[in-house]
C-alpha cells in the first residue's frame, strides 16, 4: 500500500499527465479519430468543444480505455495504455470519469455508490471508505442525501454524486463527458459550480462541454475538434476573441449567437 502511494506520488509529480501520440481510431470504415497529438500538463484544465460527431467523447473515452484504438499511443500518468489488463486497471484507478447520463448505480444508495470502488478496488476498510465518501459528499454539498437511492435525487444532485463517486478514488485526472448536457437548465449551475471548485484544487481536468462560460472561467486551454481532428488549440481568451480557423469561427458564431 505504502509502495503504491509512493508510486502515485511520483507520477503526480511528473510534468505530463496525459500524452496522446499519433492516435487514429476507426469504427468499421468510419475514421473517428485522426492524427490526434496532445500533451496535457499536470494540473492543466482543458475544455474540448466542437460539433457532435466530431470525436470529442470518443477521444475522452480513449484516455481510460473505455474505447480502444487501432494506431497510436496514449500514456497516462507515465503508464502506457496497452491491452495489458494490469495497465488498464492502473490507469482507471488514477482517472475519474463523469458521464453525461450520470450512470449512478440505481440499486445502491448514494453512499454505497461512493464507497463501492474504494472498498472493492482500493481494498479500503468500509468504515474509512464511508468517512472518505462523506467528506466528498460534503464537498459537493449533498451529505444529507447520503442514504437515499439515486432515483430520489434531481439530475443536478445525481451528477454531483457522480463527481463525488469519482473523487472517492482520489484520482489525479478527471474526465468529464458533457456533464451538464442531460440536465434541466436550472440545474446546470450547481454542477458547474462544483466543477469550478474542483478546478481551483489543481486536479488535472479534461472536460467535453459546450458551456463556454465555464471554459472562459476555468480552462487553461480550449480545444476545438471537428471530423475527428483537433482543429485549433488556444488559451480561452485567444480562442474566443480571435479564433483562427474558419471552422472554429463558424462554430463559435453558431453557439454564441
Amino acid at each position: 500500500m505504502a509502495q503504491h502511494c509512493e508510486d502515485a506520488g511520483d507520477r503526480a509529480r511528473a510534468e505530463v499527465a496525459v500524452e496522446i501520440i499519433d492516435l487514429h481510431k476507426w469504427y468499421g470504415d468510419f475514421h473517428v479519430l485522426r492524427d490526434i497529438n496532445l500533451k496535457v500538463g499536470r494540473g492543466e484544465r482543458i475544455v474540448i468543444c466542437g460539433p457532435s460527431g466530431g470525436g470529442k467523447s470518443t477521444l475522452l473515452r480513449c484516455i481510460n480505455r473505455l474505447e480502444d484504438w487501432q494506431r497510436g499511443r496514449i500514456v497516462v500518468d507515465g503508464i502506457e495504455l496497452t491491452d495489458e489488463p494490469k495497465h488498464i486497471v492502473a490507469v482507471r484507478r488514477d482517472v475519474g470519469m463523469v458521464f453525461q447520463q450520470f450512470n449512478l448505480f440505481p440499486h445502491l444508495t448514494v453512499l454505497e455508490n461512493c464507497t463501492l470502488a474504494p472498498i472493492w478496488v482500493r481494498r479500503m476498510p468500509k468504515h474509512d471508505a464511508e468517512a472518505l465518501a462523506m467528506r466528498y459528499l460534503e464537498r459537493v454539498k449533498i451529505p444529507d442525501q447520503a442514504h437515499k437511492y439515486p432515483a430520489r435525487l434531481s439530475g443536478g444532485q445525481q451528477q454531483r454524486v457522480a463527481i463525488a463517486r469519482a473523487l472517492c478514488m482520489n484520482p489525479n485526472i478527471m474526465l468529464f463527458d458533457e456533464p451538464t448536457s442531460a440536465l434541466d437548465p436550472e440545474m446546470v449551475k450547481e454542477v458547474l459550480d462544483t466543477m469550478v471548485a474542483l478546478a481551483t484544487d489543481g486536479i488535472t481536468m479534461l472536460v467535453v462541454s459546450h458551456e463556454m462560460g465555464f471554459a472562459r472561467q476555468v480552462a487553461d486551454r480550449v480545444i476545438f475538434m471537428d471530423e475527428g481532428q483537433i482543429v485549433e488549440i488556444n488559451e480561452p481568451k485567444g480562442f474566443f476573441d480571435h479564433p483562427q480557423h474558419p471552422r472554429t469561427r463558424l462554430f463559435l458564431e453558431q453557439i454564441l449567437r
Partner: peptide, 10 residues
Amino acid sequence: QYEAARALGL
C-alpha cells in the same frame, strides 16, 4: 452501467 463500473477500475 458497465462503463461506469469499468471507469471506476472494477
